[in-house]
Amino acid sequence: MSAQPPLLLALDLTGTFVFGLNGALTAVRATRLDVVGVVTLGMMTALGGGVIRDVLIGSVPPATFQDWRYFALAFGGGIIAFALSRRLDRLEMPITVLDAVGLSVFAVIGASKASEYGLGVGPAVLLGVITAVGGGTIRDLMIGQIPTVLRSELYAIPALVAAVITVSALGLDVYGLPAALAAAASCFVIRMLGVHFGLNAPRPPGSADTGREGQPR
């Protein structure tokens, strides 16, 4: 696996911290967990998708356990969410924006890493999406609710778009920092449009329109 460009690495680490923060904040809002439970769910949100990806492609031990920064940032995000949960409500939109950055970068990095390990187009795209949304899905299942990614706004679709662009660029041998940033930007824009306009993926005909759901992750 080639080293990430410094900018992508910085965004990756930022995304890890924000996913830990947002994941723990979601746990605080939805449950009566103590500090151990809140921080654990925050870390699962931040690290779960990458661990699943690495295990599936045979990259063991997962990157999370080889670079202490990921673990530390996920833990730090969880602790901050627990300690300052009431004040963080005022920063909901900034956190959502940073969460979209994390979603975008995780989708790109996940798809590119899967491709570099020799997976085909379909599996690489799938693992890009799993990297981006897997942690939040684990968290939601742990607190006993339908995963937000399956019911609220546009979340998996932007990650899918970013993963497809990434794998396509790799297949055309034009992948580099500009292509990676373009793929991440496409995910970010689609995600934020979903947040702003309350957009959702199509639902079954006749299903009730429940309006905007809570913010994912």
Rank of each mutant, 00 (worst) to 15 (best):
L150F: 15
G122C: 04
G136T: 11
F75C: 12
I130V: 15
A169Y: 03
S115N: 10
T148N: 02
Y175Q: 06
G144A: 13
D99Q: 05
P202Q: 13
V189P: 01
L91K: 02
L119E: 03
D89C: 01
A100L: 11
S115D: 08
S207N: 08
E116R: 14
V149Y: 02
L154M: 13
I109Q: 01
P147Y: 09
A74W: 05
I143W: 07
T166M: 11
Y155N: 00
T148E: 07
L141W: 14
S112E: 12
L73E: 14
I95K: 02
G128N: 05
R203G: 13
A114W: 12
L127A: 08
T131E: 10
K113L: 14
A83C: 13
A132T: 13
I143E: 03
V133D: 00
D67W: 11
Y175I: 09
V133M: 06
H196G: 06
V164E: 07
T96L: 15
V174P: 09
A184D: 09
G206N: 10
A185M: 11
L91A: 14
A111E: 10
L193G: 04
S186P: 01
S112K: 00
R191F: 07
L98T: 00
A180M: 07
V164F: 11
V149T: 10
T166H: 03
V149L: 13
T166G: 04
F82C: 03
I79K: 09
L199S: 01
V161R: 00
L88W: 05
V129M: 13
R203W: 05
K113A: 14
V167C: 09
A162N: 04
R86M: 03
G211C: 04
D89F: 05
P205D: 06
I109C: 02
L73W: 10
A179Y: 07
L119I: 09
P178D: 12
R191I: 09
L73R: 07
L177M: 10
P123A: 03
A132W: 01
L141G: 06
P205Y: 10
A111C: 08
L127E: 06
K113V: 15
H196P: 00
A81C: 02
S152P: 00
P202M: 10
F82A: 13
V164I: 15
L126P: 02
R69Q: 14
P147G: 12
A163W: 05
F82I: 05
A169P: 00
S186C: 15
G128C: 09
P178Y: 11
G171Y: 09
V105R: 01
R87P: 03
I190N: 01
T131V: 10
S104L: 09
A156E: 01
R69W: 14
S85V: 07
V149M: 08
G77F: 03
V195Q: 00
V101L: 14
E116G: 15
L199M: 12
L160I: 03
V167K: 02
A132I: 11
F71K: 04
G171R: 14
G78C: 07
A81H: 04
L193K: 06
I79E: 13
S104K: 01
G134A: 09
L88P: 06
G76K: 03
V121E: 08
A100V: 11
R151M: 11
A162M: 04
S104N: 05
I143R: 04
D140Y: 11
Q145V: 15
Y175P: 05
L126A: 15
M192V: 00
F197H: 13
R69N: 12
G76A: 10
